[in-house]
């Protein structure tokens, strides 16, 4: 409803229905296509690498070893920290002038000059995605590890008797067995990542020149800079619409194949 009104910091008194004016305004913004494209890159690469690396981590954590509890605690720790704080910490680590990462890379001889991780538009998106991947791995690992522990050992024993190798067991037993968990986790994570401006806001606020601006960051910037709550709500409607279409398509595609062993 808010997206069809003119509710802003400058207009608390005469709030009126203004039809599709807010939608017209945001879609006529020349930066908007770029923002949507950034959002797609942000979600796709973040979720993909979080899934792959989270899966590998879960497989490693599945086998018992000494100190596994402590190790698991350390690995999952980032997940417990606020995303905004993570963004601020990494913005200093990756700082192009006095960042620790640049310092280490120079000292071990990998680079000769500082890299402008967050001020070079061609590197800024890569940098924020990298941090988001690091941040999101534990979530996938926790979910997948829980699912892995429910796979009966007898299935692996039977496969081994039949002469199955590691990858045969992985693709024919493990993945099919935990498929429902994977489907749900990917769906949830996609929705969360799309609505997750914290890291980008802490690191770049969407800059430089809009190169890391995703829809959720745009929404925050609209509130903090413009103080236009209706327009911010319009960005929210766009996000919800994209996620709605995605969810329908995703569930249709994934529900076609029957889960069987």
């Amino acid at each position: 409803m808010l997206s069809f009104k003119n509710y802003s910091l400058y207009n608390f008194q005469n709030i009126e229905w203004i039809g599709f004016e807010n939608f017209k305004a945001i879609f006529s913004d020349p930066f908007y296509i770029n923002t949507i494209w950034n959002t797609l890159k942000w979600v796709l690469f973040s979720v993909f690498f979080q899934l792959i690396l989270g899966f590998i981590l879960a497989l490693l954590m599945r086998e018992p070893f000494k100190g596994r509890g402590i190790y698991a605690g350390l690995v999952f720790y980032p997940w417990a920290i606020s995303g905004f704080a993570i963004g601020l910490i990494w913005s200093w680590l990756l700082n192009g002038q006095f960042g620790v990462i640049n310092d280490i890379l120079i000292k071990i001889g990998i680079i000769e000059e500082n890299i402008s991780f967050l001020s070079d538009p061609s590197l800024a998106m890569f940098s924020v995605i990298l941090v988001n991947v690091w941040y999101g791995i534990p979530f996938f690992a926790i979910m997948i590890l829980a699912a892995l522990q429910s796979v009966p050992d007898s299935l692996y024993d039977a496969a081994e008797i039949d002469g199955a190798g590691y990858f045969t067991k992985l693709f024919n037993i493990t993945i099919p067995y935990i498929k429902p968990t994977l489907i749900n986790t990917i769906l949830l994570r996609t929705i969360w990542v799309m609505n997750f401006p914290d890291i980008i806001y802490g690191m770049t606020r969407g800059g430089p020149a809009g190169s890391t601006e995703i829809l959720a960051v745009k929404m925050i910037n609209t509130v903090f800079y413009e103080s236009n709550y209706s327009k911010a709500a319009t960005h929210g409607v766009v996000i919800i619409s994209i996620l709605f279409i995605y969810t329908i398509m995703y569930l249709k595609l994934t529900s076609k194949r029957e889960f069987s062993l």
């Binding site: 700082n95 192009g96 002038q97 500082n114 402008s116 967050l118 001020s119 070079d120 800024a124 770049t204 800059g207 430089p208």
Partner: peptide, 10 residues
């Protein structure tokens, strides 16, 4: 361009 760190755009 001539007197500030490149990173200062951020």
């Amino acid at each position: 361009k001539d007197t500030a760190p490149k990173d200062s755009i951020n």
